[in-house]
């Protein structure tokens, strides 16, 4: 983390994607349980699980950073207000 970057800038720099575990979970739940996963599929699942868990931790750290950030006025009115 760069010391001069605000939590908002850090969040903006993150990739925008759906947690890959959600996509994999959907795939696995549609699959017939009697068709066993291959070794490659298990390895892939474990990798995705690691990435998915890491992403959850990253989001959690962003949330904590935001909670510590003091409120500041913006110079425009957001859409809808």
């Amino acid at each position: 983390m760069q010391p001069d970057e605000s939590p908002l800038e850090l969040l903006r720099a993150e990739n925008e994607q759906i947690n890959p575990a959600i996509i994999l979970a959907e795939r696995l739940m549609r699959r017939d349980a009697a068709q066993l996963l291959s070794v490659e599929e298990v390895n892939e699942a474990e990798n995705i699980l690691a990435i998915g868990t890491q992403e959850i931790e990253t989001i959690e750290s962003h949330r904590k950073a935001f909670q510590k950030t003091p409120a500041s006025a913006i110079d425009y009115v957001p859409v809808g207000f």
Binding site: A21, I22, A25, E26, L37, V42, A45, G52, E55
Partner: peptide, 20 residues
């Protein structure tokens, strides 16, 4: 509950464990 990433991770983990 599928859009909950924590639950999705638990699901993947459970399915892989059961398959094992």
């Amino acid at each position: 509950r599928s859009h909950n990433a924590i639950y999705a991770c638990e699901t993947v983990s459970r399915v892989v464990s059961e398959q094992h």
